[in-house]
């Protein structure tokens, strides 16, 4: 197991290098510089601005300078938020996004897994259609529709919950978590149901049923383990995708998370910020995938053997 981990971690280095290289050159290809604005400025001023941020050096030189800084853990100053370093922005934004993401996943699991299990127990009956349809609302409406609708109903018409902010008023985390989580609830419900149906048709489950065990017991004891495997392999990428996907929710609910910086940085041509968030997110995605793999191996004894070799 330990060897398996080490191997995977060693492989992460070239992966990161590829990510860094592609991003670095791609953003410099995009038209428009970080300091362009409506009023034109004299070329001397622009040159001085570029000099302040090492943008006057040849691109290859900039690239190696960046790698050097990165090794020291320095992601550079943000071009857009001039008083802040990218490290600071990530340190501020990431915990917020992570918290939002965890609540969203929690909500998604809480709604999605039971819905999927219940649905799988009696396929093609009302017990299947009702919970699945309910869980699916989240993938039938984009979050930029669901969010404003929830805000309108619970925030403005009923006045129950705040429509913006994060941790400044009680209850302001509920609507964003539901908005972000509902998409994933639908996916999780679908995947759980699919996985459960698969397992429930296996011979050993039939045997268990034939032995007279109650359906509920069979589900809880035997089927669940096999049924959640696809959910676990989905969760790793989902968590990572969620960070990027949180942009919409963070924007409409006014949440100071990383997702907002991340997309905004691309529009602002905030080179260091794009690079910093990309490197950070890429590292995170690799980590989550690794965790998902480890859990998969752990859930499947045969793979465990294989990984040991």
């Amino acid at each position: 197991m330990l060897r398996f981990l080490c191997k995977r971690l060693a492989l992460a280095i070239p992966v990161m290098l590829v990510v860094i290289t592609i991003t670095f050159f791609l953003i410099r290809l995009a038209p428009g510089g970080p300091f362009d604005q409506e009023r034109n400025v004299p070329p001397e001023v622009m040159a001085n601005l570029h000099a302040q941020y090492n943008l006057d050096a040849p691109v290859v030189r900039q690239y190696f300078d960046y790698l050097g800084d990165l090794l020291r853990g320095d992601l550079g100053p943000s071009f857009r938020y001039t008083t802040r370093s990218v490290n600071e922005m990530i340190a501020r934004g990431f915990p917020v996004t992570m918290e939002l993401g965890l609540y969203a996943i929690l909500f998604a699991l809480l709604v999605g897994m039971p819905a999927g299990i219940i649905a799988a127990m009696r396929p093609n009956s009302l017990q299947d259609y009702v919970p699945m349809s309910a869980a699916m609302v989240g993938i039938c409406l984009p979050s930029f529709v669901l969010g404003p609708i929830l805000m309108l109903i619970f925030g403005i018409w009923l006045g129950w919950l705040p429509v913006s902010g994060w941790g400044s008023t009680p209850g302001d985390k509920i609507l964003p978590a539901i908005t972000l989580g509902s998409t994933y609830a639908a996916y999780i419900a679908r995947i759980t149901r699919g996985g459960m149906l698969e397992v429930l048709s296996q011979d050993y489950i039939r045997t268990a049923r034939a032995k007279g065990l109650s359906t509920w017991r069979v589900v809880m004891v035997h089927a669940l383990r096999g049924g959640v495997t696809p959910v676990v392999s989905y969760l790793g990428p989902a968590l990572a995708g969620l960070l990027a996907g949180s942009f919409v929710v963070e924007t409409i609910f006014q949440i100071p998370g990383l997702g907002r910086f991340y997309i905004q940085a691309a529009f602002n041509r905030d080179y260091t910020m794009i690079m910093g968030t990309t490197v950070f997110l890429a590292g995170l995605i690799i980590l989550f995938n690794l965790i998902a793999d480890v859990i998969l191996v752990w859930l499947n004894p045969r793979l465990r053997q294989e990984a040991g070799h």
Binding site: V15, M16, V19, A244, I263, I274, T278, G283, I285, N289
Partner: peptide, 13 residues
């Protein structure tokens, strides 16, 4: 590798 690329940014770029 491809997974670790932040696609939102890439598609935007």
């Amino acid at each position: 590798v491809l997974y670790a690329l932040p696609f939102a940014i890439f598609i935007i770029l």
